[in-house]
Every structure is written in structure tokens, then in C-alpha cells.
Design a protein around this nucleic acid. Structure first.
Length: 310
DNA sequence: GCGACAG
DNA sequence: ATCTTGTCGC
């Protein structure tokens, strides 16, 4: 992009050199058919099995962040200097703990006709926020079920680009393997960056839960299997619907004792994580609220960033 | 043609 | 996702 050619300059939302698989960038100018075929190639590249890199216990969060008085400040790693300066000061995060990054978007009110997304990425290590990053990105296409990554992919990547920390695990808002072509936004971003990722959705895009999801107690879970809308080979070749592959789980992360109003989460592997471990990771990352802490923090961060920028 | 559909 | 205060229930 030459500064002398008179064309409007705009820094690219993502530097292709920083992504592991630039051929999978979610280009929103592709045709619908091209988007779908890109997702098929993406799913073939994705790994829905454990990487041996992240274990739920290593990322467990015990205390939920108090958001009543704004976002908690980002903190530096624990070091010997901390205790020398002030022995009473709470220790910073364990520098050896994995970095979990939650990402979420908020949307600016379309004043003209141009929709823009404010995306936030929050790095959490050892249960402590270590960094916040956000980015404002133009949205090229409307929301289309099954093609969410082509609307929100660039915003997510832009926020991750602005983050200094290197994620060991990505927690995305939306599905991963629970997707018509097993390539939801969590899978898309995970493969693109070749980082372990999980998808956490508040509603079900496709698939069939083994059991009814009504009135379930906290901690309850049931497999979600591929249904007819999932066009994957393994999904199509299943003899009975009972043998259809498990593409994710419905997981009740929170519930009230004498009420039945909270709906379950729908969690699925993004990349380099199994369906089983995805539930374990989500469970470990929840600290009393329905959403995993990284997602809850990213949610609040995106809202805060939105207010500042409009 | 009808239904179903993450954010 | 977003437009939005109070309010019913634990």
C-alpha cells in the first residue's frame, strides 16, 4: 500500500504473516459457496483430539471477578520483588500457568450504514487478568447462521493481534465443532492460529442432545451428536443416530436450587481439544457464573470499549 | 414449499 | 447481537 498512490490507506486488521495458516483467513468478500468450501477444508485440517498441552486443572479459576465496580486491573506475574516490596500484597499470577484468552464482541450502533464491531480479548493466567486488548473493525457481511466466522472472524483476529500475550487456550463465543461443516468460529480461529481452542455458545446451532436439556442441575451434561444437518463424512455414515459422532456437549454450568430458569451452555471443541476435555476446561473456567470467566471478562471488556468509542 | 439456524 | 427498568424469585 503505497502512500503516494492516493488511495485511502487502512492498516489491515490482521497481519497475514502472524497467522499460522493464512490460506484460511475468513475473507468476507468470498461467495457463499467459497466460504462453505473453505470451511470444509478447515474442518479437514482441524484436530478434535487432545493436544496434551492443556489440562483443566492447570487453568482452574476459583474466584469470580467482581465486576460491580468495573473491570479488575491487569496484573503482572508474581515475582520475588513483589514479596520484597510488600509481603502483604497478594501474589501475582503463576508465570508458569497457561494463558487462557477469552474473546467477545459488542456492536456499535449503525449511525450511517456501516456496522462496526468492537472486539475484546482478555488474557487470564492462574485466575488473574494479565492483559486487555481491543480493536474496532468494520463488519462486511450480515449475520448468517453457519457463516459467523466470516462476519466476526476479522474482529476477533484484530483483538488477538493487539494482545501481547501468546494464548495457550482460546475461549470463543460461539460454536466450534457444533457446526454444519464442523468448522464454527472457534475452530476457524483455532486452526488459523494453530492454537488450542474451545467454543462456548449460549444456544444450539445444530446437532441433537442425547437427553432433554430442561431443568438440569449444576454440573449436568449430555453429549450433542451430529444430526442430518451436519454434512461430515463420519456424521453421514453413522448407522443409527445413536452412533452419530459426539460433536460437543450441553453443559449446565450454573443453576439455582429451587428454580429451573438457567439454560445450559453448548460447548464444543475448536481445535486441538477433544469434546470431553472441552467440557472439563469449561467447567474449570467457570467460577460461579453461567459463563466461563475469560468469556465473562471479555464480554464486560467489549461493552466498556464500546462505550468509550461511541 | 416448510422448518431451523452460533452472534 | 441490540433496543432497556424494574422486578419476580431464590
Amino acid at each position: 500500500m503505497s502512500p503516494t498512490d492516493g488511495s485511502p490507506t487502512r492498516s489491515p486488521p490482521v497481519d497475514p504473516d502472524t497467522v499460522a495458516a493464512p490460506e484460511f483467513l475468513p475473507d468476507p468478500t468470498l461467495s457463499r459457496a467459497e466460504m462453505e468450501s473453505l470451511q470444509r477444508e478447515l474442518a479437514a485440517t482441524a484436530t478434535f483430539a487432545d493436544d496434551h498441552a492443556i489440562e483443566p486443572a492447570a487453568v482452574a479459576i476459583d474466584e469470580p471477578a467482581d465486576l460491580t465496580d468495573g473491570l479488575p486491573p491487569a496484573r503482572a506475574n508474581a515475582s520475588d520483588a513483589d514479596s520484597r516490596i510488600d509481603p502483604d500484597r497478594p501474589a501475582g499470577p503463576d508465570p508458569n500457568a497457561p494463558v487462557v484468552v477469552g474473546v467477545d464482541q459488542a456492536f456499535l450502533t449503525p449511525e450511517d450504514g456501516a456496522d462496526r464491531a468492537v472486539s475484546a480479548a482478555v488474557a487470564v493466567r492462574d485466575g488473574v487478568v494479565t492483559e486487555y486488548a481491543s480493536a474496532t473493525t468494520p463488519l462486511s457481511i450480515p449475520y448468517i447462521p453457519g457463516l459467523l466466522a466470516f462476519r466476526e472472524g476479522e474482529p476477533v483476529l484484530a483483538a488477538l493481534d493487539a494482545l501481547d500475550a501468546e494464548p495457550d487456550l482460546l475461549v470463543c463465543d460461539g460454536s466450534g465443532r457444533i457446526h454444519f461443516r464442523e468448522a464454527g468460529i472457534a475452530t476457524h480461529v483455532g486452526v488459523l492460529l494453530d492454537v488450542p481452542s474451545v467454543g462456548v455458545a449460549k444456544s444450539l446451532l445444530c446437532g441433537d442432545p442425547d437427553e432433554s436439556t430442561e431443568e438440569r442441575p449444576e454440573g449436568w451434561r449430555t453429549p450433542v451428536r451430529a444430526d442430518d444437518s451436519v454434512e461430515t463424512a463420519a456424521a453421514r455414515s453413522a448407522a443409527d443416530s445413536d452412533d452419530a459422532p459426539v460433536i460437543g456437549h450441553a453443559f449446565q454450568s450454573r443453576q439455582y436450587p429451587n428454580s429451573r430458569r438457567v439454560n445450559p451452555l453448548y460447548v464444543s471443541p475448536g481445535h486441538r481439544v477433544s469434546a470431553e476435555t472441552t467440557v472439563g476446561l469449561t467447567d474449570a473456567l467457570c467460577a460461579g457464573y453461567k459463563l466461563p470467566e475469560p468469556t465473562r471478562l471479555a464480554d464486560a471488556s467489549a461493552d466498556a470499549a464500546k462505550r468509550e468509542r461511541d
